[in-house]
Design a protein around this nucleic acid. Structure first.
Lengths: 134, 134
DNA sequence: CTTGACCCTGTAGTGACTACAGGGTGCAGA
DNA sequence: TCTGCACCCTGTAGTCACTACAGGGTCAAG
């Protein structure tokens, strides 16, 4: 049987990606250029599907495209070890933990502000007051 | 005594803002155009300082520039009430809470992944494995 | 033979800045 | 007076990760 092939729309749908995003990944060199049909349509194979799935999963986990690029490179080089991968994931985890802490601090401040709102006139608004200097 | 005036650098420093950012706020109409000196330098007064402080505080609390614009408008119109301000703050709080929940889910996934790392060869790496399809 | 869904390239827009390039201004020290 | 330097000016382009056109071409069904 012949190898399966996907149009850009089919590939996009299979990976919950927009068509424009697939072309974007190609443009920035994250996804290799596929073959073309007689009518100049992109024609993708299983390796493209696998690679795009990898990219989307990593993106869903919040890795940057740069990190994804590195992870893809590592996944392909059989002769390096797992430490770099682990380091990237660890760095990312640290980032996320910092963001969670920042957002919690922010939430606390906002809750305090909102709790003070008396629904009165602007001139007595505590939120505006808290934002205004002095 | 004469009114105090600030150069763009002084204003930026007083509000922990970069000079380019101050000019950017002016360009997008968030900060009114200041007067100019003989040498065409921007010359700011106390109202500019107050307004920029307001903007920075709101930004630090994570409001978008569009929200800041609305808040500034409300702060200036004495005849509206506090409800709109409260609604903006509430919306923002909801956003933040969703972001915290999303990040926590992500952290859980990443922790699971990292916990499985055996520091072995790439071919056995669980992180890469988890990202790769099937 | 036409309609409509899909595909193509190329460019510009988003948010909130940031970073130049290529010049002008203002002031202190030699 | 000269020179250096920090600061200021405008205008444009870059960042990240897409997203949204405009203006066309392809292809299969009816």
């Amino acid at each position: 049987m012949p190898k399966p092939s996907y149009s850009i729309g089919a590939l996009a749908e299979a990976t919950a990606t927009k068509v424009e995003t697939v072309r974007y990944y190609e443009r920035i060199g994250l996804l290799p250029e596929p073959g073309r049909t007689a009518g100049n349509y992109r024609s993708y194979g299983e390796t493209h599907l696998g690679r795009l799935s990898f990219i989307r999963r990593a993106r869903d986990l919040g890795f940057t495209l740069d990190q994804v690029r590195t992870l893809l490179g590592l996944a392909e080089s059989r002769d390096s070890d797992c430490c770099t991968v682990d380091a990237i994931a660890q760095d990312h985890l640290t980032d996320i933990e910092r963001k969670i802490a920042d957002l919690k601090a922010l939430r606390r401040e906002l809750r305090d502000l909102i709790g003070q709102c008396q629904k009165g006139a602007i001139s007595e608004c505590r939120i505006i007051g808290a934002l205004s200097p002095r």
